[in-house]
């Protein structure tokens, strides 16, 4: 049985400017289940954004395929909503009109009042109500703009929501509140989400599963780490969960050391490169001790 979203042997090569080719990533294969929140972590240059653009349909891979809900992804579609790092709001439209722009595209048959009502509802879900929604994006703070962008994406009920470092340009405090907003709205909508970030704490707070990428070139998705912390999660409480630091240390170890060690190994043809599943759960004694060792060591040191 194939997962809801299946990325199969995705390879991306660019000309390196010297007549040769640069392989960004090769034979990347992984899956995302329906309703799952998957975060991809990796250093810059490992091709996270390229994978995102391919999933969005804004770029074409050199080879390989993306299959969602039994259909191959070709070109952009309303089924895959995108929240860009730089918000990508249309600056000549008001906040409300920006969200209505998306809703109108999704439901061309709706009347204007239906569209407006739907848009207003989703803006309220991210905490934007009253006069604010009639302001232009230039009159909003960065955090508010990203809320608008999130409201626009959720309002369209895409089958897959792609978040491209959505909080990268925000300060830490704003980031925290919007992460909470995102968790809240995600909890209500059962939305499948695929998100890029390089913030480890953000990834643990939000994700069901974290995909770890090795450094580029020839990057690959090396591990799939399950986040064994129950929902609903809360930023102040998850740090007290026994698994939190074990998972965190594993991720830090990977990004700090192993992403380099595993990098730059060209893969043989035919190898699928499926990520190794890592499950760190200190609360579960049935766990294979072999898998636990690095995490425990990190905790004790």
């Amino acid at each position: 049985m194939k997962p809801y979203l299946s990325i199969e042997k995705l390879t991306q090569r660019f000309p390196d400017g010297a007549g040769g080719e640069l392989t960004v990533f090769e034979n990347a294969s992984f899956g995302v289940e329906k309703g799952e929140f998957v975060v991809i972590l990796g250093h810059s240059g490992c091709g996270k954004s390229t994978i995102m653009n391919i999933l969005a349909g804004l770029a074409d891979p050199t080879s390989g395929a993306v299959i969602m809900d039994g259909q191959e992804v070709k070109g952009p579609s309303l089924d895959r909503g995108v929240v860009f790092q730089n918000y990508s709001l249309l600056p000549w439209l008001t906040t409300l009109k920006n969200v209505m722009f998306g809703v109108k595209a999704r439901h061309p048959e709706w009347t204007k009042s239906q569209v407006e009502e739907h848009a207003t509802k989703f803006l309220a879900m991210v905490g934007l109500e009253g006069d604010v929604i009639h302001r232009k994006p230039s009159q909003l703070s960065g955090g508010m703009r990203q809320r608008v962008s999130i409201a626009r994406a959720f309002a369209n009920h895409p089958k897959l929501l792609l978040l491209d470092e959505p909080f990268g340009a925000l300060d830490a405090l704003t980031r925290g509140t919007i992460q909470d907003e995102l968790l809240k709205i995600w909890g209500q909508m059962e939305q499948t989400v695929f998100m890029i970030t390089h913030d480890i704490d953000e990834a643990i707070l939000l994700a069901d599963r974290i995909l770890l990428m090795t450094n580029g070139p020839n990057a690959r998705v090396a591990e799939s780490v399950e986040i064994t912390i129950p929902r609903p999660r809360n930023r102040t409480e998850i740090v007290e969960h026994p698994n939190y630091y074990a998972i965190r240390n594993h991720l830090v170890q990977f990004l700090g050391k192993r992403s380099k060690e595993l990098a730059g190994q060209p893969t043989e043809a035919g190898q699928t490169n499926a990520p190794e599943t890592v499950r760190i759960d200190l609360a579960d004694p049935a766990e294979d001790p072999e898998d636990k060792r690095p995490a425990l060591k990190a905790v004790n040191s």
Binding site: L58, F84, A105
Partner: peptide
């Protein structure tokens, strides 16, 4: 390009993209 991408991810046709974006 971001704005054009917004139009693309919302499946707007070329004419609609030209006039609305």
């Amino acid at each position: 390009e971001d704005w054009v991408n917004v139009a693309r991810t919302h499946e707007l046709g070329p004419i609609k993209t030209a006039f609305t974006v």
